[in-house]
Design a protein around this nucleic acid. Sequence first.
DNA 1: ATTGATTCCTACCAGATTGATAGGTAATCT
DNA 2: AGATTACCTATCAATCTGGTAGGAATCAAT
Lengths: 154, 154
Amino acid sequence: MRISARAEYAVRAATELAAASPESATRTTEAIAQAQEIPRKFLEGILLSLREAQLVTAQRGIGGGYRLLRPADQITVADVVRAVDGPLVFVRGERPSDLRYDGSAEPLLGVWVALRARVREVLEGVTLADLARGDLPGPIAAINEDPAVWANPE
Amino acid sequence: MRISARAEYAVRAATELAAASPESATRTTEAIAQAQEIPRKFLEGILLSLREAQLVTAQRGIGGGYRLLRPADQITVADVVRAVDGPLVFVRGERPSDLRYDGSAEPLLGVWVALRARVREVLEGVTLADLARGDLPGPIAAINEDPAVWANPE
DNA sequence: ATTGATTCCTACCAGATTGATAGGTAATCT
DNA sequence: AGATTACCTATCAATCTGGTAGGAATCAAT
């Protein structure tokens, strides 16, 4: 279960826009690329995806750039990841709820569905405003209070 | 965040072994492949990985096959997935706790760590015995009681 | 109307991963 | 000896991934 570079860059870029003040200000691809150390040409494609997903708008020409289309507290990390990478969780190329299991493997479906639910819980539980402010919401922060969560078991 | 065919096949194959009775009985690659409709040659490689991870043992020759090395209630889905696909969650090729963020993207680390924690919770919370018996443990089953969990939002 | 900044679009690329197959070797039992 | 089974190595096409190149369209300011 990997989070792609595309997705990670996208969240960082979007957070950069969320941190812009005032909210109506635009930031150029170049500015975002430098601030977040993202390859510029690669970032171009990412921002395009974010625009197609209606998370940002673009303005061409001098003084142009990107800005968020909705308030930062109404865009979640899940929105951004879905915009660039598609469905949050899929199993063998299909969404869990599209899978068909028969026979003894059937209870496995429940595992994938529960997995997706938990992934959603985290990624839909954090907004760009949270990230820009630098403070995770209580329920998410609570997860990380257990030190075991920071250890690598493998 | 995809669950690979390899991982999904591996869990099904392991469940097949968990369902064998008595527990000491062996099942051949061929038998597992047919029962679970997994390409045989592909399954061969998967079972090899499971053996290297010390989850199963193999016996060659007539009457040979594979069997679980530990009781089925002491092998979790996470164990199986790690055996064939490595770390459960990684971001841009690294484990969350190996990532370094500086500046405004720093709180993002907490998101990935929380994500991994929740993924672990589900995959470490279900054993092969649970799957073989066809009943998910209470905490996992509880997640799936909310109907929203079964819907595709995208 | 020209110029410079900027997004937008299409194409391309090398390398890794994924899902799978082929064919032979080694061990084990009857 | 012969059948059966796991084991190993190599190969493969297709796709994905991370990234680059170059120009066309658009916009604001002069």
